[in-house]
Design a protein around this nucleic acid. Sequence first.
DNA 1: AAAGCGGGGGG
DNA 2: CCCCCAGCTTT
Length: 360
Amino acid sequence: MNKSWPAGIAPFPGTPFARRLIDWQRHHGRHDLPWQTRDAYRVWLSEIMLQQTQVETVIPYYARFLERFPTLESLAAAPVEDVLARWSGLGYYARARNLHKCAQAVMTRHGGTFPADPTLLAELPGIGRSTAAAISAFSYGTRAAILDGNVKRVFARAFGIDGFPGTKAVENALWDLAEALLPERDVDIYTQAQMDLGATLCTRGKPRCGQCPLADGCVALRDGRVAELPTPRPKKAVPERHGRFAVIVANGAVLLERRPPAGIWGGLQSLPELPEDADTAEWVARRFGLTVTRVAPLPGLRHVFTHFVLHLAPERVEVAAGDGVRDADGLDWWPLDALADAALPTPVRKVLEALQRATG
DNA sequence: AAAGCGGGGGG
DNA sequence: CCCCCAGCTTT
């Protein structure tokens, strides 16, 4: 309340910033997104899915997820494997593991109801300061500031804020601004307006400044700096890694191995990873107690992560029918026609779907 | 091919 | 606390 206006930042001329956004939202914002309810469970689910992921991508996942987990109770009671299976393809799978933990925490700590206080929300797994504010504003009308990528971009341009928003100093300045600009009322509309303005007008490339309600006060537009703000992340070289994966097939099923709970593709089902120098047939025979009848390379795949590039080299391994697998913990023979139900990362899904198409 | 997108956890 | 990590889509 009554936060002091940040130093060196000029207020918007005439109509205040928040008023402009709220007025704009009523006519030009999005009002028909499937999670625009006051149901905190649905709001929370959407906000977690929307972390690092755009609206259009989220919509089908959101629908399929709610179909399987219609209530907080059903989600909390489900095995984490089922949660990961419905998350498969969305990426950042720690979000799904935290989502599941969070559902259980809300059941035990809060009696099955999400708290309205953003501070309490932010103590739950997977919910940080911005997500907590969004959930409480949308679900309960709480007066709390968000600061997501859209807001950072709008602020950086509108107020001419230099510096990469990932650095502590710039981020602190943006949070101060977010708090100072927060309106007294209609915070839910204001919050949606910031997201919608950033997603539909003040986009990264080709922003539509001609339609922007902030145009007459926008520092970046005035100074011809729209294209250079916000300041981009400093570039860094990404290392390359190589991985060999065994595609062990028998009787129309493939052997999947659950990955360790943390790290890349944590908790997901994947293909067994071959050691760099191992002889494929020998390693598969020893590791799984299977009799290998044939090994053949499959087309490789280049998969780009933010911090490294992974070259996947899959090898098709045929084994004698009727062989059982030794050390069955975390291992599953998965029918190729049931891949839709598997908790697979996208590149592994690609490899297996190509194989399924090839073998019919 | 490069950049964008919130939060968790380790050093 | 700061730095690194994670996976997909869009441009």
